[in-house]
Structure formats: structure tokens, C-alpha cells
Design a protein around this nucleic acid. Structure first.
Length: 463
RNA sequence: GGCGACGUGGCCGAGUGGCCAGGCAAGGGUCUGCAAAACCCUCUACCCGGGUUCGAUUCCCGGCGUCGCCUCCA
């Protein structure tokens, strides 16, 4: 399998450190405000990569962190006049709900930054002891010049960066490029004891410390948004490798940014679409489909029309699967899976994989029309759709049952069940009482239930 | 200024040195009480200019255009 490694900027063969095992670290949320569409993309594309690797048989340890201490969290708390916990809990709740709706699998471990202060301090101490970091008035800075390979991920040369205008001149740093590992406490801020006095961690150190704790000094895959390449991931590499002397992550994966009207979505500019809002207005699986239609490394421009296309794609997929009741016993069609694997093995070409899936659906529908066996195709469908996380959700129909019951009783179905209602409709159709059968169908349509008449009888589904 | 990505049919979006992506939309058919679904057919594209080649959308060079990062960011 070939994957694109940002470190080296090329497609390379995936070689795991341990046969059959993969350690994967994904930069998760800074729980500072509500998630937007871009956060959802990152969560979903790496979820699919993880699911695919697991489907191939790898034992994946999937670590996704929560950063719950950060300048912006402190700012937000101050602005609202509340403790940082309030901000953190609210934002975490929103991310968690979005992940649930999007069908993102739970990580193997979800470490929180504030629960790993000792691990961070240990790393910082190591860096100070080895001369890669220095303390000034309770702050500890990483000395970028002490790590000769600095810039190997982002391809920024320290000398070029130095001339960049946005590097702030902090008097206490020995070099403008140096970044904070530990920040001395300011009044009213969250703080922990350290060898350099009370303070809090810098932005980058938590990922280095937590990846190390759960995956080891060296591990396979580190992933995150493209915008994290510099400085976040560059700094992680520098501080980790300077401390341990061994390579940090072997493969760096970065997802492309979400655009809105051609411009990057970004928290700082307010140019965003709230994730939970869009998930409430549309089927969450359709939002997931939007993410998966475009290759994970490419920019993705969000549009309403793209979302309705995704809805239609889902209807086609699920419409096929509904034609076959329940699970199938058959072995999945080998030729289909081979095509699917060939696409996915090429740097997770999900779009290509979707092409295979839709080909399967057309062939499956054709065979069903012809009365031929579709077992192996349905089995393959189920496998692929599970890897993509696009299976039709089941359950959650409590409200719907009440709505159906109302309509059923109105049409004389004493039980209030949809089966009896459809039986009444079938009788009406047999008697050519079209007004009755159409009224039942129209009434069900008003609550989002679609009735389709086929040669084998009537089917119904939501949406 | 430095580093990087991308430009495919009405729209979205894979991919490939010569032959099929796929989806959505549109038009025509089959089926059907009607509808829906499904199936069949049509719509055959690769920013521009050079070059390499028997042959380039695909490789190389040069333009043009769009976008991202350069210590807030998934």
C-alpha cells in the first residue's frame, strides 16, 4: 500500500514497525469553541483511514488528543467571566456530539492535555538537561537552532523564517524562532507546579508527550490538518526527536482544508459553518458523504448543491441495500473487493472506492431486476460501506412511530402499526381504490416516509 | 519574498502515455393504475503555449489562473 508522506512529500510504501500493528496519533480538538465543518472533515477522513487499516487486518492503536489548556480557552473564559472548565466542557460536548452523529469511531485512547502535565514536564526537563531548551523567568523555550533538522517537515528554512515579519520579537527568547515549552503562570490562569515555578504547558508539547506515552518514542502515523504542518507538527518533531534521539512519527498525513465560497474556513476569521447546525439540518451521513467524495488531501469547497448531491448518492446506495432484507451469509464478491482494495491502497483513494461501490450497486440492481442472485455483491456492499462508515443508521424511530400511529388510525388501522396500514392500502389497490391508496401514501410522505410499490409488494422507508 | 497544492464534460469528482471512472443534473426509452425506485441509451471532458513520443489530459519546460502555509487554526 502506498501512502503520501508529508515528510518527504512523496508516495511511499507503508511499512509498519511491528507486523500487523499500527500506532496512529491524530491531532484532535482544541476545546475552545464549537466545531465547524473543517473539524468534521478531519475527524471523518482519518476515521476512514483507520477503519480501512483495521479492515485490512491491522491492529490499530488510534490516539486522538483533546487540548484543554490553551491561550484561546483562557481568553474565552475571561470574556464570559467563567472558569475555563465551563468553556472546555461545553466545547468538548459539542465535538463529542458531532463525532457521534458523524459515526466517527471512538479512539482507542483519548488523552486530555491537562491529565498529562507530569509527562510533559518530564519531556521538558529532558530537553533542558540536554541543552535543547532553556529557562527564562519561569518560561522554558525550545532552542530551534539546537536541532539541525528543524524545517524538514514544512520545508521552512530557519534562515528564511527569521526574516519573516510575523515572528514576534520576544525579548526573553534567545532566538525569535524559539517556541515556548512551558509558560510561567499569570494571575487567574490555570497553572501547575514545575521545576521552573508555577505555569502551564505551551501549545506543542502535549502532543509530543501524549504520543510518547501511548505509542512510544517512535510510532507509525501522525495525522492532522494541513494547517498544522507549521508550526505545530514541525515543533513536535523537533522537541520529540531532540529529546529521544530517535525518529518520531514515520508517516505524516495531512488532510486538505475545507473552503467556503473558495476561501478557507477558519475559526479566527469567523468564516465558518457550524458543524452541529449543519448536522441538525441534514442527514449526518450525507455530511459524511460530502467529506468522502473528495480525496482527503485536496481542498474541499462546501456548497449546498454538493450536500444535496451527497443526499442523492446516499439514497441510491441505501435504496439498493433496502431491496435485500437483513444480513447475507455469502462470501463477498472477490473481484469487487479487489477493485476496492486497489483504489484504497493508492493513498486511500476513497473517491475511486466509491466508484467501485456504485458500480456494484448498478450491477446489483440489474441482477435483482432480473431475479438473479446478489448475495456476494450485498456482502461486498456491506463490507465497503462499513469501511466508509456510510451504512444506513438503524433505530431512533421513537417519534416516527407515534406519527405513523396517528396516520394509521386515521385510515382505520386499529393497531396503529405501519404493517396494518400498508395492508389496508394493498387491499385498496387491489380494489382499484386509487384515492384511498394515494391518500395513505401522501399522508406518510408528509412525515418523511416514502412508500414504493414493487412487483413484490410495497416497501417503505424514511426519507 | 520563501515553501507548497491545484486547474478534468452543465455541476461535483477519481484516474491514466493509446481503451470504462463514478455521482448529481438533463434528455429519450423499458417497467408501472399513478408515483417512486430500478434498468437501458444519449451527453465523450481534461487551463494555454511549446517540447519528448508512433501517440499526451497523463511526462518535461514556460505561461496564466485559483488556493494554502510562513508561530491563532482540523
Amino acid at each position: 500500500m502506498r501512502i503520501y508522506n508529508t515528510l518527504g512529500r512523496e508516495l511511499v510504501e507503508l511499512q509498519t514497525r511491528d507486523d500487523g500493528k499500527i500506532g496512529m496519533y491524530v491531532c484532535g480538538a482544541t476545546v475552545q469553541s464549537a466545531p465547524h465543518l473543517g473539524h468534521g472533515r478531519s475527524a471523518v477522513v482519518f476515521d476512514v483511514i483507520r477503519r480501512y487499516l483495521e479492515w485490512l487486518g491491522y491492529d490499530v492503536t488510534y490516539v486522538r488528543n483533546v487540548t484543554d489548556v490553551d491561550d484561546k480557552i483562557i481568553d474565552a473564559a475571561r470574556a464570559e467571566g467563567v472558569e475555563t472548565d465551563v468553556i472546555v466542557e461545553r466545547a468538548y460536548g459539542a465535538f463529542d456530539e458531532a463525532h457521534r452523529l458523524l459515526g466517527v469511531k471512538e479512539p482507542t485512547v483519548e488523552p486530555w492535555a491537562t491529565h498529562h502535565i507530569p509527562e510533559m514536564l518530564e519531556l521538558v526537563e529532558q530537553l533542558v538537561d540536554t541543552g535543547h531548551a532553556y529557562e527564562v523567568d519561569g518560561d522554558v523555550y525550545f532552542s530551534v537552532r539546537s536541532y539541525p533538522e528543524y524545517g524538514k517537515l514544512s520545508r521552512h528554512k530557519p534562515d528564511d523564517l527569521r526574516s519573516g515579519s510575523r515572528v514576534d520579537a520576544n525579548e526573553r527568547k534567545r532566538d525569535p524562532l524559539d517556541f515556548a515549552l512551558w509558560k510561567a503562570a499569570k494571575p487567574g490562569e490555570p497553572q501547575w507546579d514545575s521545576p521552573w515555578g508555577p505555569g502551564r504547558p505551551g501549545w506543542h508539547i502535549e502532543c509530543s508527550a501524549m504520543a510518547r506515552k501511548y505509542l512510544g518514542d517512535s510510532f507509525d502515523i501522525h495525522a492532522g490538518g494541513h494547517d498544522l504542518i507549521f508550526p505545530h507538527h514541525e515543533n513536535e518533531i523537533a522537541q520529540s526527536e531532540a529529546a529521544t534521539g530517535v525518529p518520531f512519527a514515520h508517516y505524516w498525513l495531512h488532510n486538505g482544508m475545507m473552503n467556503l465560497e473558495g476561501e478557507k474556513m477558519s475559526k479566527s476569521t469567523g468564516h465558518v459553518i457550524d458543524l452541529l447546525e449543519i448536522l441538525a439540518e441534514h442527514r449526518p451521513t450525507a455530511v459524511r458523504m460530502v467529506y468522502l467524495r473528495t480525496h482527503y488531501r485536496k481542498p474541499l469547497d462546501f456548497s449546498e448543491s454538493g450536500l444535496s448531491d451527497a443526499e442523492a448518492m446516499l439514497d441510491r446506495l441505501w435504496g439498493f441495500r433496502r431491496r435485500v432484507e437483513g444480513s447475507v451469509e455469502d462470501v463477498a464478491d472477490a473481484a469487487v473487493l479487489e477493485r476496492f482494495t486497489a483504489a484504497m491502497d493508492d493513498d486511500f483513494d476513497v473517491s475511486g472506492g466509491l466508484g467501485v461501490l456504485f458500480d456494484l450497486v448498478r450491477e446489483g440492481n440489474r441482477r435483482l431486476d432480473a431475479g438473479e442472485d446478489v448475495g456476494p455483491l450485498v456482502a461486498a456492499y456491506d463490507e465497503i460501506v462499513t469501511v466508509f462508515g456510510l451504512a444506513e443508521p438503524v433505530g431512533d424511530s421513537g417519534d416516527l412511530e407515534d406519527l405513523i400511529a396517528d396516520i394509521a388510525r386515521r385510515h382505520g388501522a386499529a393497531s396503529g402499526g405501519i404493517d396494518e396500514l400498508l395492508a389496508i392500502r394493498d387491499r385498496a389497490r387491489a380494489d382499484r381504490e386509487w384515492a384511498i391508496s394515494d391518500a395513505i401514501r401522501d399522508d406518510l410522505a408528509t412525515i418523511g416516509v416514502t412508500v414504493e410499490d414493487t412487483a413484490d409488494g410495497s416497501r417503505w422507508h424514511r426519507g
